[in-house]
Design a protein around this nucleic acid. Structure first.
Lengths: 184, 184
DNA sequence: GCAGAATATTGAACACCGTTCAATAAGCAG
DNA sequence: CTGCTTATTGAACGGTGTTCAATATTCTGC
């Protein structure tokens, strides 16, 4: 039933947003009652986290095939960035669940979650590996964190429906170009 | 009383985070009851939005004095970025209220809110004006949106307490450096 | 000072929420 | 069929946002 519950939760998030997610709604959709949910999940935080892990995993899969279709660094980096945009555009609510949901004070994010994030970072590191020498691992990591932060920040700004100048694609393009110019 | 309520709301957000904010808590702290809040605010969205406007205004004031102490572009841009970090570091919960609070479907953000955002963009545009010619207004706007997105994204990543490589200051430094190198 | 109008404040009501847990139902081994 | 184990229930608790008729208070004109 946990699989059913996670699917149900995802459907609600997709259709109404993570703010509209509730345990009772999740169980009602699949013919269960609220009590059952709490035998299988350690509260709503756990449910949302496990759903988010699934989203991150899908994002990784999507980006991976995008990157693997390219050869040189510039093309790979562009494919990665555009792959991210493509995925988030088609799963805006699921991405928003990742970005805006706040776990209860003291809740510890699972290793599985951090592993998915690491997978995504690995993709970026792989694409840009040739820019960094043996002793530049730290610099490399910093740059990847910066790129990731910028990517997610760009989406946040672009999806805020305020006219802040510049379309999503333009910003992405300038970010990648800027990085390549500064690095290559 | 609306002033009192906004102060009370801010105190709760600072002490417990925006997720712990509730109308009854806000009014109880100042000796009122829940009914009163709804005569003065058009629901919780309105209350949060007006509180967030105050936060953005404070952020602007803080960044403005930081920028005005510098002369050349590079120094101004650095001051701006570090001013942002400084403010958000000292007001993490209030900033999180801006980033993670989700307004109800259909709620329209006020002009006053968008104006505060515009003020911040104006600060960035002022500092980088000399990089852009007469016909490059659009390009300028795109770049500013990108810088803003990156700045806020960097904070989101850095404050997520996952070790994703690179301290906050390092990322900020590399972002500004990257922009200047690509532009100047 | 006082009547009346305008404004401010209340608190109960409604339908939800997350979370817990004793009680029940279902499935299964011997 | 009995007992044991697992799955499921649903009531209970203390909270939430929101509405609104009823009550208090303040202000205005006389």
């Amino acid at each position: 039933m946990t699989r059913l519950a996670l699917e149900s939760a995802r459907t609600i998030v997709v259709e109404e947003g993570v703010a509209a997610l509730s345990g009772r709604k999740v169980t009602k959709r699949i013919g269960y009652t609220i009590g059952t949910l709490y035998q299988l999940f350690d509260g709503m935080d756990d449910l949302v986290e496990r759903m988010n892990i699934g989203t991150l995993s899908s994002l990784f899969d999507h980006c991976k095939v995008a990157v693997e279709q390219e050869d040189d660094v510039a093309a790979q980096l562009n494919a990665l960035a555009l792959g991210f945009v493509e995925f988030v555009r088609t799963h805006p609510q699921e991405w928003d669940a990742i970005m805006s949901y706040r776990y209860k004070d003291g809740y510890v994010i699972s290793e599985a979650y951090n592993y998915e994030i690491q997978k995504l970072f690995g993709l970026m590191e792989g694409a840009t590996a040739q820019f960094y020498g043996a002793g530049q691992a730290e610099e490399h990591a910093t740059d990847m964190a910066l790129l990731w932060a910028s990517l997610t920040g760009i989406w946040a700004v672009a999806s805020s429906e305020r006219e802040l100048g510049g379309t999503l694609e333009h910003m992405i393009d300038r970010l990648v170009r800027m990085y390549l110019k500064a690095r290559a």
